[in-house]
Write a protein that binds this DNA or RNA. Sequence first.
DNA 1: AACATTTTATATAGGTTCTAAATTTAGTTC
DNA 2: GAACTAAATTTAGAACCTATATAAAATGTT
Lengths: 401, 401
Amino acid sequence: MSEITAGTPQLLRRVNAEAILLVMRSTTAVTVTELIEATGLTRATVIAVCEDLEQRGWVRELPNQRDFGGYQKGRPARRFELNERAGYVLGVDVGVAKTTVVVADLRGTLQGRASQPFRSAEIPATERIEVIDRTAIAALEDAGASPQDVMSVCVGIAAPVDRKGDVLVTQSFWGKFDVGLRSALTDLHGWNVLLENDANLAALGERWRGSAVGIDDVVVILASERFGSGVIEDGRLLRGSGGGFGEMAYLDLVEGVGDPFGIASLARRWAAEALASPAKTTLRPSAPGTEVEAEDVFAAAAAGDAVALAILDRLSDRVARVVATVSTMVNPELVVIGGGVAKSAGVLLESVAERLPQLTATPPRLAASPLGDAIVTVGAVRRALDHVEANWLEMEPAAAS
Amino acid sequence: MSEITAGTPQLLRRVNAEAILLVMRSTTAVTVTELIEATGLTRATVIAVCEDLEQRGWVRELPNQRDFGGYQKGRPARRFELNERAGYVLGVDVGVAKTTVVVADLRGTLQGRASQPFRSAEIPATERIEVIDRTAIAALEDAGASPQDVMSVCVGIAAPVDRKGDVLVTQSFWGKFDVGLRSALTDLHGWNVLLENDANLAALGERWRGSAVGIDDVVVILASERFGSGVIEDGRLLRGSGGGFGEMAYLDLVEGVGDPFGIASLARRWAAEALASPAKTTLRPSAPGTEVEAEDVFAAAAAGDAVALAILDRLSDRVARVVATVSTMVNPELVVIGGGVAKSAGVLLESVAERLPQLTATPPRLAASPLGDAIVTVGAVRRALDHVEANWLEMEPAAAS
DNA sequence: AACATTTTATATAGGTTCTAAATTTAGTTC
DNA sequence: GAACTAAATTTAGAACCTATATAAAATGTT
């Protein structure tokens, strides 16, 4: 059936080392005494583990400085700290038009970033891979890190990805492309590459550094051009058998299967329809020659424009039905709306929240994502860090610079 | 943040004992050599653990019998076996009209059962609890077990239950009743009582002994009088923040919020409507004076009756939309239809399966539950056993009889 | 400057648990 | 009874932990 894990004495050291790394991950310098309190281990054990980890490169000892904030009595404590430069992770966002790569250290602090557009949406896979690779190298240079220092890479794409990292939709162009990307990056640099759905990464990102910190049951909906969601239940990301958990393309509430139908798309379309026939409205594109965007609609609605308010009403209804469907089935504590429109969608969310109690027995709290465009890369970094932290002791830290 | 678990040397023994119990749980008598292969431990260790477990009462050693199937060379092996009578678990199904209690040993083998009707649907909570308690005692007598031998009790009810075992819907009569039941059974017999949603238990049951064995991503829909589902993802039961994961009462596809609307209810209603106006049909109640039931509709449809076929068509459409919605969002490998109608619903399922590809990008396999009315109690037994197995070494085995 | 106080570090002894290798045991086979 | 074989037992050794005693490094006091 499942794996049986038997324990040798070395397992103990492993467990304890991981416990100590876990504490260090979320604090700055800690004294041995603090570690004793946090883990329940003996002083002798803690010191042994710390020195072990120091020798391996994961941890460094600080010189005794007791001159922070008042004096203390007694023998000065030894202080240890996670060596956040023991390795780096890459978070990659592959969009249709461009790709963004960020570099973070083991604390998740951003160390570098780079972004490059694709020449067009239909370039061949090899070129696309090449652009991504160049962007990654540029981001590493920006961070002052070298490719050997990369311990894990997570790539977010707009397609379902199953637990093994394979892409579900084989008929789409993603199928070939992504397998190619994974093996290309592995072959070129020896990197460990994790492929993930973008909405799933958005969920991880929100729970790490967004509006869902500390919340174990949350749904994050990427709502700009199309609706896609990432679901976290009891702190775990859900994927489903083929990576399709949280998809909503075929839901009954959708008109025109497969069409783009997110908030931004709908606002654009409905605004164009409204302006096609003459009407008394202040609604117009923010820049001449462009289309009316969702932000323009929100702004006009806030100013009391009737046409904009009507569009806002339709949007609220649509979004409320999406949120209600997912809330009924998934019963999250919080639903976060993410994607490009999120920053200006405050008015929309209020109106959506009002409608929810009629549409579901379990209305969740609602929030807009504060992460903006970085939502996918932040989640990708978190996912890559998760992988490193799950395999701390199997990995080799980078050579000290 | 989360719990830090540090390891003392005793942890090892614990881990290894659990590994060995896990092997024994799913086999009959095993030799030490087999355990060595299964766990990777040394002979000395395995023997030490087995003797430890034997002394605690979890395991018994068998007399050397090598006369099963041909002879073997060498010194006869010692053989150990899980003591399945080290304790019992209770699986309880509390319905509106009656309650059923089954008793199982630690292997999950049924040892006894009892069922009793409630006097009416609106009896006071205390009477309801009393009936359940009497049924439990009767089931234990049937099994030849005593209340002290019960290691865990799981109770299935038709209401959402959160992870702590609290009931979500406080306004319904369940709220007061269930808290009462838990504490009553604990106070009376010292039992550990786990409350669970019935559809969730159905999911556990199907994955254990139904049509979802070995499948890690499955949705089980209880579909008779109303739709409710239990969702298992990557082998874990999902609950959501308030226990409402898998609810579908408010989904758009429902007419008449809160009304009963499962397959049985709909078939009954639509058949009555069809018979109200004169029509050429063979459809009639199987017993005089009763209503036309879903089984009658299925039977008439199989015989080619046009009215029945029309009802079947409407039912298929309804069920297909329910299955499609859940499949789009949850992407299971398999969807199981359970509840009273399941056994006769073969025709229905075929017709539903045909419609799915148009309604979702990720159509799952479909199956009917083979568990019949036992679906909830089977799941309840599984849930209770899970609890025992998760806490094996903290519990005291029952005194040998 | 000597000494107490406080906190931490180190050393030593003791216990649990595992592995590994040598030895013994309990059967079958001839 | 001797040879054979697979398993059990014994013995030595190692990793890891705890607990306790002792030493060290600072501050403060007399």
